[in-house]
Nucleic acid binder design. Structure first.
Length: 286
DNA sequence: GCTGTAACCTGTCGGC
DNA sequence: TGCCGACAGGTTACAG
């Protein structure tokens, strides 16, 4: 599921429940997700106050009162939901199919009476605990590239990052070491908005094209966050509601449909790059 | 060093 | 209806 807009949407949904709350108890229902939980995970979190909940790229970061940082990644299918005393049926945000509850792997019991439940059927997500002071050397975060919704992200920066790269634009944008937070959907969308081919070598784009691309990335991500993210299969907001940006997709999952660019008579085409679907218009994306 | 591919795990969907 | 294969939004290790 989650690319940057989905993670940001989840973060915004979790803040009211988690910030300022004490973790009274933590249920860790299995020894691992994608990676094993760190030693003493539940014990180390129990009794801690969550000072703030932030985000870096696709990572959720919970600052704790003892100087630790809880790192959470949703992988492909991870989601959080918030339950409170008014909700009598655990899993109410799902269609009431019990098998969903089988994938509730972590439950935070908070001092404000709320429960925050982490569900992840495919278990590609993970959680880790590090010292806040060690954030610069934490393997998950240390190599991340520029934040695409941050102030420093613009065409000049993007042009510099791509200089000399022979890798296709699509792969370069998915490379979290260059730009951190983009995924398959929004790369396809931004490249179409910018009129750039995903197959072009990244190092060949001009400064003007890089500016166009940076603007497109900002616009696509901003619109997606405002729409609550995209709900294709797994993503829900923390309050259980679906995002609806998928209704605004220009090209993603629209193979065979007319190009949404009104000045173009092309058709959306699906190709495979690095084993992943790419949707683009062969006519107006150059 | 750079690039592409496979693998991780499970659910869903389409075809037969 | 049931079975099977393809595919899925991320990340990382490894081979070339």
């Amino acid at each position: 599921m989650p690319e940057l807009p989905e993670v940001e949407t989840v973060r915004q949904g979790l803040v009211p429940a988690m910030e300022g709350a004490v973790i009274d108890a933590l249920e860790q229902r299995r020894p691992d997700l994608r990676f094993p939980f760190p030693a003493g995970f539940a014990e180390r979190l129990t009794g801690r106050t969550i000072i703030g909940l932030g985000r870096r790229a696709k990572y959720l970061l919970a600052d704790l009162d003892d100087g630790a940082l809880l790192i959470m990644h949703l992988g492909m299918s991870g989601s959080f939901r918030v339950e409170d005393g008014t909700i009598q049926t655990p899993g109410i945000f799902y269609h009431p199919r019990d098998k969903q509850a089988a994938h509730d792997h972590v439950v935070f019991h908070l001092s404000n009476g709320k429960r925050v439940v982490y569900n992840d059927p495919r278990r590609f997500g993970f959680m880790d605990l590090v010292r806040r002071a060690d954030i610069a050397t934490t393997p998950h975060l240390a190599g991340l590239g520029i934040e695409p919704v941050g102030n420093a992200f613009d065409g000049v920066t993007l042009h510099g990052l791509f200089a000399g790269k022979r890798t296709p634009l699509k792969a370069a944008l998915l490379d979290q070491r260059l730009v951190a937070g983009l995924g398959n959907i929004y790369v396809c969308e931004a490249l179409h908005m910018a009129g750039l081919s995903p197959e072009r070598a990244a190092g060949t784009i001009t400064a003007e094209e890089a500016g166009r691309l940076a603007t497109a990335i900002r616009e696509v991500l901003g619109a997606a966050i405002a729409a609550g993210g995209s709900s294709l299969r797994d993503h829900r907001q923390a309050n259980g509601e679906l995002g609806y940006f998928q209704h605004s997709f220009r090209v993603y999952d629209r193979e065979g449909e007319p190009c949404p660019n009104l000045a173009c008579s092309g058709v959306v085409t699906r190709t495979v790059q690095s084993g992943r679907s790419t949707f683009h218009c062969l006519t107006c994306q150059r």
